[in-house]
Amino acid sequence: MALTVEGLKKSYGNLKVLDGVTFSVEEGEFVCLIGESGCGKTTILKIIAGLERPDEGRVDFKGVNRMGFVFQDDRLLPWKTVYGNIQFALKAMGVEDGDVVRRIIDFVGLKGFENYYPKQLSGGMRQRVGIARALAVNPDLLLMDEPFASLDARTRERMQEELLRIVGGKAVVFVTHSIDEAVYLADKVVVLSQRPSRVVRFIEIDIEKPRDRNSDEFIEKRREIYTALQASSG
């Protein structure tokens, strides 16, 4: 067990966002949080990352020394190159540089773009830098907040394929509102209700990766999640 989230409650003033969210992530498990926009998915990630405190409930880590975070918008430092942006995370966490940055750049397929500034890159490439930055610190847990939401459909699918290769056996919490994305990536899908958020269902997806988006079992899982979401929005 890498992460346990138990009974998270959170309100902003009178607005109740989380109403007892509980789930866990096994070592090496890829967990997708799915729910409608504005249901508090991002808040859960921020609480896990320690950026916000829950009103109630707790987050327990086991064997997690470092976390990596990938944002919905790339959040790259505009004045740093691809290399500099990745290096920033290492400096921030006080990790020795070595040739980690170069290796990661190679790994995410950005070789040759080391000295490019973010504005010179496409959306997909910038998101790749964001992922590389999160991976560079060699995290035990990777938190991803709808990282592909702003990409076009084709790029998005390619990034999903690559992501599976890149994250390997790391524990991941991946927030999305795309059912297709969840079925493609997740080992386990946590379906959240509308605000205030609660967990309405856990759906295990035991299809062999890489998955065929047109296979019957894929479509079946998609339908299952869809139904769960529909039911939760009542």
Partner: peptide, 24 residues
């Protein structure tokens, strides 16, 4: 957003000043 990013990566204040605030 950039400050939040820096905090997520647990950047120390000095680094935030040098690599985020001053360049901006």
């Amino acid at each position: 957003e950039l400050l939040e990013m820096a905090r997520v990566f647990k950047a120390p204040e000095r680094l935030i000043l040098r690599d985020v605030v001053l360049p901006h």
